[in-house]
Write a protein that binds this DNA or RNA. Structure first.
Lengths: 133, 133
DNA sequence: CCAACCGTATTACTTGACTAATACGGTTCA
DNA sequence: TGAACCGTATTAGTCAAGTAATACGGTTGG
């Protein structure tokens, strides 16, 4: 059973995206494996203190990414293949990259510095955290 | 006198940012030089068919960037130095870079490919244009 | 079967970004 | 000086994103 007990307290962006990120990170790290039972929308909503529909929005997105499967009325399960796992990693990287660029847009950084920063953040194993300029 | 007669019809994003971009591009390209008289908020608003406050928002941002100077009651003028001109170029580049990354986020690009694309787009001389996938 | 759970759809509320309407005070020049 | 501009501040309307409230129908296990 996938657990939300380690769900980070803070974090940036809307809740539903942080849920998506949390599961993607679990898939990428291997803590979420194929066939794992997902906690129900209501259970997660109670755990995080949000509305079930907010969780549903995240689960829907995860399903569209192929990371979970849902049948109406029944429980949801993780659906992890080598391909979807690699895709999850790529999406996490892309998010980091996007944040870096957002910072770049607000300052007038030079190319070399931008490339270095980009390379550095791309390589690092980042799960959570990271602040603005 | 800076002219808005060449202001692009279409364009992406909010109007006030397109105005900022338009002037920045003028500064970067040299069509807007130091001491140039800026058309008043009301004149530009009439030309573009928007509210004067929308133009004001853009002018305010340009002033914070040091590209124009405004005195309450009097006309506004361009304030272009070699430094501010270079900063305008950097900001235009940063916007392009930001758009590229937005595309990257939607696909699952690898680091090497992203770095190459980033490097390439950073070097190229881009003034206007650029579309999404 | 049927109660208890599940996923899902519809609707509404809240908030921030963007734009507009309006009014106020400063500058300029005949 | 005063009319005609100018920049500026305040307020309100519009719209999309995020979240919540509620209800509906499907699945499951005793």
């Amino acid at each position: 059973m996938v657990s939300f007990s380690d769900f980070p307290t803070g974090g940036e962006g809307p809740i539903y995206l942080r849920i998506v990120r949390f599961i993607r990170a679990g898939v990428a790290a291997g803590s979420v494996v194929d066939g794992d039972e997902m906690p129900s929308r209501r259970v997660v909503s109670a755990t995080l203190g949000v509305n079930p529909n907010t969780v549903q929005k995240a689960y829907r997105m995860l399903e569209e990414e192929g990371l979970i499967v849902s049948r109406s009325g029944a429980k949801s399960f993780a659906c992890v293949t080598p391909e979807s796992r690699e895709a999850a990693r790529q999406r996490l990287r892309a998010e980091e990259l996007g944040r870096v660029i957002s910072s770049l847009r607000r300052s007038g950084m030079e190319k070399s510095a931008a490339m270095e920063l980009l390379s550095k953040l791309w390589d690092e194993d980042i799960e959570e955290g990271g602040e603005e300029e």
